[in-house]
């Protein structure tokens, strides 16, 4: 398959740490607007895959292209983020001393150079956009609260809101519902589905009911490469997947 017209194109990507192959010739293609769920046992390389896409880890071999022609393996984290790739970590990391509003303002798509931020004054459009995101993430009432005092679920939502504020073309979401209540999990699935279309989303998740609620194409990773790909029902029926991951 050619890289043209794809949003993200990984081909033959390998990474090893002290001889352990975290990624073993991984290939994956995302189309613009697509949403994809990635599942797999611990150590399958899910987080490492996100690390190589966002520039945290450099692959030993392989190609990673964004929008068909931008080579991500040569760029630093901040440059990759500015291309339009947002990332949400497993553990929610919001800026605890700042208010909910300030967290969103920092994430909001705007010039990122120090001198630009030194003289930044919030515009009417920026204000409206933050209001909108507060509304989507149901944090309007908490805008003045310190982010450090939010509950775990609220922090996860704030972090998703921050990603929306960044307005990335591709969103990488690592275990968004870990530690959430059932109701929160359901709301998060709705939220992510409403985002897809405008943004492409890759979700890494262990929670099968959540993946089912998303109802999107699933890629199963194992030992650093793709084991199976397809709808959740199709991959669940795959005997290899049952052996290595689902078990029993």
């Amino acid at each position: 398959m050619s890289a043209e017209s794809t949003l993200l194109y990984l081909d033959g990507v390998s990474v090893s740490f002290d001889g352990f192959k975290a990624l073993n010739s991984l290939s994956l293609v995302m189309m613009p607007g697509e949403m994809r769920a990635i599942i797999g046992p611990n150590g399958a390389g899910k987080t490492t895959m996100m690390d190589v896409i966002t520039g945290k880890t450099r692959p030993d071999t392989g190609t990673i292209l964004f929008e068909g022609d931008i080579d991500l393996t040569r760029l630093r984290e901040a440059a990759i983020a500015n291309l339009g790739i947002g990332r949400k970590f497993q553990r929610p990391t919001v800026f605890e001393p700042h208010t909910v509003w300030d967290n969103l303002e920092l994430a909001l798509k705007a010039p990122r150079r120090p001198l630009k931020t030194l003289t930044y004054a919030i515009s009417r459009d920026d204000r409206a956009r933050i209001e909108e995101i507060l509304d989507i993430t149901r944090l309007s009432a908490l805008r003045g609260r310190q982010a450090g005092s939010l509950s775990h679920g609220q922090k996860q939502w704030l972090e998703i809101g921050m990603l929306l504020a960044q307005d990335p073309k591709l969103l990488l979401v690592d275990e968004p519902v870990a530690g959430m209540t059932d109701a929160e999990t359901e709301q998060t699935a709705e939220l992510l589905c409403s985002i897809a279309g405008r943004h492409s989303v890759i979700v890494v998740e262990h929670d099968m009911s959540f993946v089912r609620a998303l109802g999107v194409k699933v890629t199963v990773l194992a030992e650093g490469s793709v084991l199976a790909e397809g709808s959740l029902d199709a991959v669940s029926a795959n005997s290899q997947v049952i052996d290595t991951y689902l078990g029993r």
Partner: peptide, 14 residues
């Protein structure tokens, strides 16, 4: 100061 890598992934050249 509190989460440098997070700021970096947000596109700021820390």
């Amino acid at each position: 100061r509190d989460a440098e890598s997070r700021v970096r992934f947000m596109g700021y050249d820390t």
